[in-house]
Amino acid sequence: MLSIALLLLPDFLLIVAGFSLCRWTALDRPVWAGVERLVYWLLFPVLLFTSIVRSPLQPAATLGLAAGGVLTVGTGIVLATLLRSVPGVDAHRQASGAQVAFRFNSYVALALAERLGGSASVAWVALLIALCVPLCNIGAVWSLARHGGHSTGRELLRNPLILATVAGLLGNLAGLKLPQVVDITFGRIGGAALPLGLMAVGAGLQFGGLREAKGLAVALLAIRHAVLPVVGLLLGVALALPLGQAQILVAFAAMPTASSCYVLAARMGGDGVYVAGLVTASTLLGMVSVPVALTLFSRLHGG
């Protein structure tokens, strides 16, 4: 477990660096808001596109992994939705926070995949992102729809991560080969996405947002960090995934939630402060849940 935790340590230190810079230097929140936009609209889409185009996906060989990712996210959506029927649960906070239980931090997922298995693992995570980001966004937007007049379809069609991933998949299937100059340029642009993205996650951490509805917070975080990793482990066995893909599925299932949960909640009239607290707690819990899940995976497979 220590070796896996050390694998995550560089990413965790980048998050700490972003948190520290935002609060104790002139690089305050407005600076990091601009960094978030840069990563979201340019750096991260370029990283996804180039990762997918460079790596042969072999759709038939990744069908089981794709099914595992969709089933994992689907389980989270169902469980988070069922919390609406629990007596005493505040409907507004549940609608705002439900997304925390099933969305995932793509920055951390890609950074970890690169360390676990190089470009092949990055391509597998990119495939999971391609399939699960739309599903997560549908679940999140649907949950918040009652609090605003936003169109789910329009939000999905404008998502740069989805657009870049679809473009990468189409390019890969068409056998697209980028010219060397373009490939190097895109590689350098995409290479900036992970460190800046992780630092932006740290800059966005907020404490104190969970003073209300603590029971709901515990339930949502338990789904994200306890239930879904177990689901990922079981699906890897049930679907007879190759070892590398099974490991990526487990890591994917144990990810901290997406930092953009706050943005969506605030934009669609949800309880942004509460969601910010959930995102902060999930980011910290992810530094434990990922090593634990991967250690269980290693022991299950005799590693």
Rank of each mutant, 00 (worst) to 15 (best):
L156A: 11
Q206Y: 05
A98W: 08
G209D: 09
S119A: 15
V73D: 09
R188P: 11
G74I: 00
S106Y: 09
V100S: 03
P87T: 00
L198F: 04
L178H: 04
L71F: 11
G175K: 00
P134M: 01
A126T: 00
L178V: 05
H92P: 09
G190H: 01
T81K: 14
L194C: 11
L128K: 07
F207A: 05
G74V: 00
S151Q: 07
V182S: 15
H92A: 15
G153Q: 05
L173N: 06
A98M: 06
L156I: 00
A174D: 09
N105Y: 11
G88A: 09
N137P: 14
G148C: 15
N137S: 12
F186S: 11
G175Y: 00
E155P: 02
L169Q: 06
S96C: 10
G97A: 14
V133P: 11
P134I: 01
R84P: 13
L116H: 09
L169F: 08
N105R: 12
T165C: 15
S119H: 08
Q94I: 01
F207R: 04
V166R: 03
C136A: 12
V108R: 01
H150L: 01
L116P: 12
R115G: 15
G76S: 06
I184R: 10
P87L: 05
R154I: 01
N105Q: 12
N105T: 14
R103I: 00
Y107Q: 04
G204I: 14
L79P: 12
A123K: 10
S121W: 07
H147P: 13
L144D: 07
A111D: 10
G209L: 03
R84F: 13
T165W: 05
L173P: 08
T152V: 15
V86Y: 03
G148T: 10
L196S: 10
V100E: 02
L176D: 11
